Amino acid sequence: MRVEIWSDIACPWCYIGKARFEKGLAAFDHRDEIEVVHRSFELDPQLAKGDTGPVIDMITRKYRRTVDEARAMEEHVASTARAEGLPYRTEGRDTGNTFDIHRLLHLARARGRHDELLDLAYRANFGDERSVFDLEVLAELAVEAGLDADEARAVLADDDAYADEVRADEREAAELGASAVPFFVIDRRYGVSGGQPAEVFTQALEQAWQGRAIVPLGADADAAACGPDGACEVPQPGAHS
């Protein structure tokens, strides 16, 4: 059975959702028979390449919040991430266009190193003081993931390399009705939206394995997710977090 996960490196709930999904998968009896495929989704595809800026500034602009409110929102997400055992820094982190990251991830998939690069990119973006919007940093991460340095740099230097693959993933997301990420598609029959708790993923996998309905594809479940233009929902008290 295949699970496809649409996500973006800039999305904190994708970072958290990946960890929760992996915990849910670990508790699933047939976990060794599950193929996991990560697919591309840009939160803000209209953002120009090289147009980067502090996350706090983005939050104040998109949510019309004060700097203090934006920092409180980041602290909330950080505490949720840390509860999952994930490093998360709230200061000095940038956001920007992620198309180059997705292109490089497709190279990594072609070379059998996708999971390694994805984990490194998430950690660099959310846990370390390394900007994934810097092409030199991306090249370094590619080498750390086991990719050839010259090949990775060549892909990053060629805007067309793996561009079609990224756009194909994004078209599929639109066709499936995914308007926010993370978005999980199980066996091309069922969908789960948002960074749900681990036990929800375990239950979803069990139900899909047994052929029972979960959430129709395209449905927007009540869970933390990031939507168009980079906006990321912060759950209210009582919601999944």
Rank of each mutant, 00 (worst) to 15 (best):
R123Q: 05
A124K: 06
A124V: 01
N125C: 07
F126Y: 07
F126R: 07
F126H: 00
F126M: 02
F126S: 08
G127R: 03
G127I: 02
E129W: 02
E129Q: 13
R130F: 00
R130M: 10
V132M: 03
F133M: 05
F133C: 02
D134Y: 05
L135P: 15
L135A: 13
E136D: 15
E136Q: 07
E136F: 00
V137L: 07
L138K: 05
L138M: 13
L138N: 06
L138I: 09
E140M: 01
E140G: 04
L141T: 11
L141V: 09
A142S: 04
V143R: 14
V143Y: 12
E144N: 07
E144A: 08
A145V: 04
A145G: 01
G146W: 04
G146F: 01
L147I: 06
L147W: 03
L147G: 07
D148W: 01
D148V: 06
A149F: 10
A149V: 13
D150H: 12
E151Q: 11
A152F: 06
R153S: 10
R153C: 13
R153W: 05
A154R: 10
A154M: 00
A154N: 02
A154D: 01
V155Q: 06
V155I: 10
V155A: 04
L156R: 09
L156N: 05
L156K: 10
D158V: 09
D158W: 09
D158I: 11
D159Y: 00
D159K: 13
D159Q: 12
D159E: 13
D160H: 12
A161L: 07
A161I: 01
Y162S: 09
Y162L: 09
Y162A: 02
Y162H: 12
A163P: 01
A163T: 00
A163V: 04
A163H: 05
D164Y: 08
D164L: 14
D164V: 14
D164S: 15
E165Y: 01
V166I: 05
V166G: 00
V166Q: 03
V166E: 02
R167N: 11
A168M: 14
A168E: 15
D169I: 10
D169V: 11
D169G: 08
E170H: 04
E170I: 03
R171H: 12
R171Y: 12
R171K: 14
R171A: 15
R171M: 14
E172T: 15
E172D: 15
E172A: 13
A173F: 00
A173E: 06
A174P: 09
A174K: 15
A174V: 15
A174C: 00
A174H: 14
E175I: 00
G177S: 09
G177R: 02
G177H: 03
A178L: 11
S179A: 14
A180D: 12
A180P: 02
A180S: 14
V181L: 07
V181N: 05
P182H: 04
P182L: 10
P182D: 06
F183M: 02
F183C: 08
F183H: 10
F183K: 03
F183S: 08
F184P: 06
